[in-house]
């Protein structure tokens, strides 16, 4: 038996300390980031083939509906990334865990990229379907506000010189901005809008053909793995910056 094993009552807390340990997080990201990236790439290929070639055209929209396979997953991830960012920022703020802010900072550019993709693909889908690239309705406007929330978080975090003050201020912004998430999600029910309601997440089951649902789910898993992979490599960068004077970072850099 190891002499330095923690006593029984303390063992339950070991995972907690390891989660909060920057070195452990760096090693974890280093190991799982590339693996998630490879899986995401493979799933993207499968999803693109199924979505662009194998799936049949829609009886109303023709082929333009194929934008759904990138529009819906990126739009969903833009919300998921924001919630992840706000929760980790809040954990960092409340329990003073360093990793909280590090993860929040890593989520922000990914979430902004997803939001941008969702807005652009939606706009390009709107033109052949609704006859316009943009309209100031509830769903589109609230999604645009989400993009500005991501930009605001990053700008505020980088503008304040003191790292601790920057982390606190941006965490509060992220948590307050959470109010926008249910507004985006329910906007198609609360207001009259051009944007259609949900077809996949329904109590009665999805109202979409299986040959269209499968590529959508494949793309959804692909982009989730992409998010994990991107998050891992961004966490590594953030830690190399904030922990650069520690001995473990020097060990990594020294070979």
């Amino acid at each position: 038996m190891l002499d330095n094993a923690p006593p029984r009552h303390a063992r339950n807390w070991v995972w907690f300390h390891r989660f909060g340990s920057p070195e452990h997080c760096y090693r974890l990201s280093e190991r799982w980031g590339p693996r998630a990236g490879v899986c995401a790439g493979a799933l993207f290929m499968v999803g693109l083939y199924l979505g662009l070639v194998a799936a049949p055209p829609d009886y109303q929209m023709g082929n333009s509906y194929r934008i759904i396979f990138i529009h819906v997953p990126t739009a969903w991830m833009s919300l998921f990334a924001y919630v992840s960012m706000a929760i980790s920022a809040a954990i960092g703020l409340i329990w003073k865990i360093k990793m909280g802010h590090c993860i929040a900072r890593s989520c922000a550019p990914l979430g902004a990229a997803f939001t941008l993709c969702a807005l652009i693909t939606g706009s390009l889908w709107g033109k052949p379907t609704w006859g316009t690239y943009w309209i100031w309705d509830a769903r589109l406007t609230s999604e645009l506000i989400l993009l500005f929330l991501y930009f605001g978080f990053m700008a505020l975090d980088n503008a304040i010189e003191n790292r601790r003050t920057a982390a606190q201020a941006s965490a509060i912004l992220a948590v307050v901005g959470l109010i926008n998430i249910p507004i985006i999600h329910y906007s198609v029910e609360w207001w009259n809008t051009l944007h259609q309601g949900s077809t996949v997440l329904k109590l009665e089951g999805p109202t979409i053909d299986t040959r269209m649902l499968i590529p959508l789910l494949v793309m959804f898993f692909a982009i989730n793995l992409y998010f994990i992979s991107g998050l891992c490599s961004r966490i590594q960068c953030e830690l190399l910056d904030s922990e650069r004077s520690t001995s473990w970072v020097r060990r990594i850099a020294g070979g």
């Binding site: 990236g37 023709g62 082929n63 333009s64 529009h71 652009i120």
Partner: peptide, 29 residues
């Protein structure tokens, strides 16, 4: 794509460029 080629290929290529850039930039950093 039955006349919708422009919209489909533009949106797929923009997403590809945005996601690739977002994925590669931390590796170079």
């Amino acid at each position: 794509m039955g006349g919708h080629g422009f919209y489909i290929w533009t949106s797929y290529s923009i997403v590809l460029v945005v996601l690739l850039y977002t994925w590669l930039s931390p590796h170079y950093r």
